[in-house]
Design a protein around this nucleic acid. Structure first.
Length: 504
RNA sequence: GAAUCGCUAGCUCAGUCGGUAGAGCACCGGACUUUUAAUCCGGGUGUCGCGGGUUCAAGUCCCGCGCGAUUCACCA
């Protein structure tokens, strides 16, 4: 078949159905003088859900000719039957049967329907409700208007669209074919709204900080790099908003939060997307304990907002009304790896234990790094019920305040659910001298080849030097919260347009 | 990065031992004024993911590549 682009909007890529529909569209314009893409408004007065609610009381074969319904939606299926036609109309709220009779709409409109309206098209309709003999609430159409024409066929009406690749790449087709997918994203929206409501009920101000900047700090992660032409400088996409929000607390903005996209140039799997949504919150005069309470409240309220405190993910049910568990990293390692770190006093001892446990050891690890490795290897996956992990070593917590009782450890927690990290929080380090040392330590790690070590942010130190009040801060991975509350097994199922490799 | 599985019509899928590409839905034409996976009659619309190879003959066998899914590794 020769490569050619056919004129008038036709393409050699078109399949048979698309060619027929394009041809139909041209004929609709030339034969009827009707342009289905002209600027049109339609005064929709009812959604299908509201129609369903208003006329639920109708009995089979009952018809309410006095009521007027004015609605609109996408034609999903058409059942033509000579001088009568049934169709299913869907909108964002529901789906309802339409009944067009030759007598009810008139001959001219009925012929137009037969000739020009297809499944996939958007139509506005005026009619009244009735219930069929078989009990189906139906709109008896008296007038309708073709609002927009679809020239590409809908996915199959019975099996729908299941091909994951098409579902993610062409999410619009997924959303058309699978109403339950629309419901997941409505829940996502409600969860995020609930977070905002909870935060604002505590007097927290929503702020926006740079996505693009010269330094990407606040987390251990590889950033995306880009270039600003006019400034002539390399820039990075943010990996966290932490350092900016703490500057705002220094700047006397009080309680602040941001819900926004972070970007990390790392692998993609069922728990990670290169861009993901993070909520970060900072409260002056508070500490990590306040953040624990806030974390529980945020998650519980979000669950309530979508209807239930009983959640199920990956076959495991959880009751979010119960208080969340607490365990220290050392306790978790003792329990799940069988290693008692209280008896380990040197890095050498720790490395020996780690080798025994089968961990890959280079010989430079401190006992604190080993503790963390043992937790990640043996502990993490066991924290199924919501659990605050406490007592992180200072070495792996460069922005976290030390525990005054044991300065090798910090006042920090991570919240785990289903064995996955959902939140990370701490009493924010506000000692500028200590913060400088921590950054210096990170800089050493970076120089040793750790490309995920924190960058040294001199201006952030400057901010801390200006005085950060005692502050509790927390970050929550919103995508994971949505996954656990909706039962989605992949992060791609809670992100409308997940990252995909280009096909060709 | 590795392994496994998948990629065939718009969608969901079948395709035997290597022997002329199939079904349902959708779509096109016709009948039908209460159907609802409507029904009935007629019609197959295709770069079998891409590129090589073996063979008289490849959707099928072999090699390479691409994309996706899952698991593992990596990664907050």
């Amino acid at each position: 078949m020769p490569e050619e682009i056919i004129q008038d909007g036709f393409s050699s890529e078109d399949n048979e159905i698309v060619r027929q529909r394009k041809d139909k569209l041209l004929r609709l314009r030339s034969e009827e003088g009707y342009d289905p893409y002209v600027n049109e408004t339609w005064d929709r007065q009812d959604t299908l859900a509201s129609v369903r609610e208003r006329f639920e009381h109708l009995q089979p074969e009952e018809e309410d000719t006095n009521a007027v319904i004015k609605t609109a939606g996408r034609v999903m299926t058409v059942r033509r039957q000579g001088k009568a036609t049934f169709a299913d109309l869907a909108d964002e709220t529901s789906r309802m049967q339409l009944y067009f009779q030759l007598n009810s709409v008139g001959e001219k409109a009925y012929d137009f329907l037969k000739k020009w309206v297809d499944s996939g098209d958007w139509i506005g309709i005026i009619g009244h409700p009735c219930r069929t003999r078989r009990g189906e609430l139906t709109i008896m159409v008296t007038e309708y208007r073709l609002l927009s024409k679809a020239i590409r066929p809908l996915p199959e009406k019975w099996h729908g669209l299941t091909d994951t690749e098409i579902r993610y790449r062409r999410r619009y087709m997924d959303l058309i074919a699978n109403p339950e997918v629309r419901e997941v994203f409505r829940k996502r929206s409600r969860i995020i709204s609930s977070f905002r409501e909870t935060l604002e009920s505590h007097g927290t101000l929503e702020v926006e900080t740079p996505i693009l900047s010269v330094l990407a700090g606040g987390a251990n992660a590889r950033p995306f790099k880009t270039f600003h032409n006019a400034l002539g400088v390399d820039m990075y996409m943010r990996i966290a908003v932490e350092l900016y929000l703490k500057r705002l607390v220094v700047g006397m903005m009080g309680r602040v939060y941001e819900i926004g996209r972070n970007f990390r140039n790392e692998g993609i799997d069922t728990m990670h997307n290169p861009e993901f949504t993070m909520m970060e919150v900072y409260w002056p005069y508070c500490n990590y304990v306040d953040m624990m309470n806030l974390a529980e409240e945020l998650i519980r309220n979000a669950a309530k907002a979508i209807g239930t405190l009983e959640i199920e993910w990956n076959g495991t049910k959880l009751d979010l009304s119960k208080p969340f568990h607490r365990i220290t990293m050392r306790e978790a390692v003792k329990k799940y790896a069988g290693v008692d770190f209280d008896t380990i006093k040197t890095d050498e001892e720790a490395r020996a234990v780690a080798r025994e446990k089968g961990l890959e050891i280079t010989g430079h690890e401190s006992r604190f790094a080993v503790l963390n490795m043992l937790f990640e290897e043996f502990g993490e996956e066991n924290l199924i019920e919501p659990t605050f992990l406490l007592g992180h070593p200072t070495e792996i917590s460069p922005l976290s305040k030390r525990d005054p009782e044991d300065t090798d450890y910090t006042h920090r927690f991570e919240l785990f659910m289903y064995g996955k990290e959902v939140a990370n929080a701490f009493s924010e380090l506000n000692d500028p001298l200590d913060q400088r040392e921590r950054f210096e330590d990170q800089a050493r790690k970076k120089a040793e080849g750790d490309d995920e070590a924190h960058v040294f942010d001199e201006d952030f130190i400057n901010a801390i030097e200006a005085g950060l009040p005692p502050t509790g801060g927390m970050g929550i991975g919103m995508d994971r919260v949505v996954m656990f509350l909706t039962g989605a097994k992949s992060i791609r199922d809670v992100i409308l347009f997940p990252a995909m490799k280009p096909k060709a």
